[in-house]
Design a protein around this nucleic acid. Structure first.
Lengths: 248, 248
DNA sequence: AAGTGGTCTAGACCACCCC
DNA sequence: GGGTGGTCTAGACCACTTA
């Protein structure tokens, strides 16, 4: 027989504890282990991965931080209740993603898509020079054909080219941008209640003056560079926004 | 001379690594170390706390998770850029605190304060039995005498006693609760735009049907136990809500 | 009593940064 | 080259759960 080879490779493209994290996640996803199920004991996992207990526990700790596992002293390690994006403190979701999560179909009616010049306010929010060429798209967002919101988005053409060619009635802005390697990491948002303007009311098929939930967002990438301005007005009784506030 | 005593006690009310975390935080705050300053080397800190390097690193890792420190390989440990409350993703602020931050004075007109029984919905949200004795207070919240919102708060009397004796026209609910050692850590919030009911409109001195921003919150303590239900309706054009969404 | 996770150690080697 | 953090180990003891 040959020597028993370590399950995890010895030379390190990745630290052993990182490999253990990946291996455990793979086990959970591939074996389809459900929430609440028990893992093998730490000592067994050490044998299986051929690593020390300290190293294994570093991996387990990481998985706790990631919300994958929980430990119960004297009992064992258990798979944590699955937290979907909805349980995440404040996940930035596109309209399309939210629709999917709720089992609905998102679509749009395009009211306008053009390339123009950034106004003073827009330029300031985006951190570019006034007059910079920007792409604008105005859409009525619908869930299963029901108009839910009117969405005015704006971004510098330098962020992503060729946006005029996209079929905005079907495509998701977030999806399109991510295809073009634009990362959207944070959205600073201002929210208020307003009366629908005549124009907005007509687009959304509601009475003028009806309450709408207006949200203005500056979306930035991982380096805090603004990539997108978004102004959405949701029909008051057709949308709810969820968020979480925490206190130090 | 006596024996040199360990800096950290040997018998453990707290794990050694936890004590090290506290000691380092104390150093930073008491010595007023500024962002970007370097800490002693790991080996020095081990000597000082009389703990092993593994244990020290457990503490340092915790401080990284808490956003207090950052490590640079080959260079040392550094104090992370201070994140003020304003940089905090979503700080939970009371109406009074927000007013202070903006340099305004918060006051209230009390529409009702009583002890009653929790309804089925309230009991479910609070995680108590229906009929549990709860304290309710309804207030019109004002900034510099201008009515801004109507606030309906509810909490089990078991959380804090004697709430009927408080002068709610002047006191802050958060302030009163914190005096009674109730910690408010998280507020899961649902936000929507609504038309003001006749009752709400009268209380807020606006036209019936005007848009209001309605926010319902379940406020929980550090152990995720619900301590407070809050339903606030803000006058549409007198309030804006700020929040931040992030993406994985 | 046996098994589980929780904590802790002393020592080693490596990768990276700076002089 | 010398100092720093990054990783890893084998072994020990404790606290908690379960039977």
């Amino acid at each position: 027989m040959t020597d028993p080879r370590p399950v995890l490779v010895a030379d390190r493209p990745q630290p052993l504890w990182r490999q253990a994290v990946d291996a455990i996640i793979r086990d959970i996803t591939e074996l389809g282990l459900a929430e609440g199920m028990r893992l093998p004991t730490e000592r067994d996992l050490c044998l299986r991965f051929d690593i020390s207990r300290v190293t294994l526990r570093r991996a387990l700790q990481q998985l706790v931080d990631d919300g994958v596992l929980t430990a119960h002293q004297g009992r064992g390690w258990f798979i944590a209740p699955a937290v979907g994006p909805k349980d995440w403190p404040n996940s930035l979701e596109s309209f399309t993603e939210t629709a999917h999560r709720m089992g609905l179909t998102a679509s749009s009616r395009v009211l306008g898509a053009e390339i123009g010049q950034a106004t003073l306010d827009e330029a300031e929010a985006l951190g570019v020079a006034p007059g910079t060429r920007v792409f604008r798209v105005v859409r009525v967002r619908m869930l299963d054909r029901v108009p839910i919101a009117i969405d005015r988005a704006l971004l510098p053409v330098s962020v992503a080219p060729d946006l005029l060619d996209v079929d905005w009635a079907l495509e998701s802005l977030y999806g399109v941008l991510e295809q073009r390697d634009v990362t959207m990491h944070r959205a600073d948002s201002i929210i208020e209640a307003r009366s629908a303007s005549d124009e907005t009311a007509a687009a959304l098929d509601i009475a003028p003056g009806s309450p709408v939930l207006a949200m203005q967002q500056v979306v930035t990438d991982r380096d805090d560079r603004p990539v997108l301005l978004s102004a959405i007005e949701y029909v008051g009784d057709r949308y709810r926004l969820r968020t979480t506030f925490t206190r130090a």
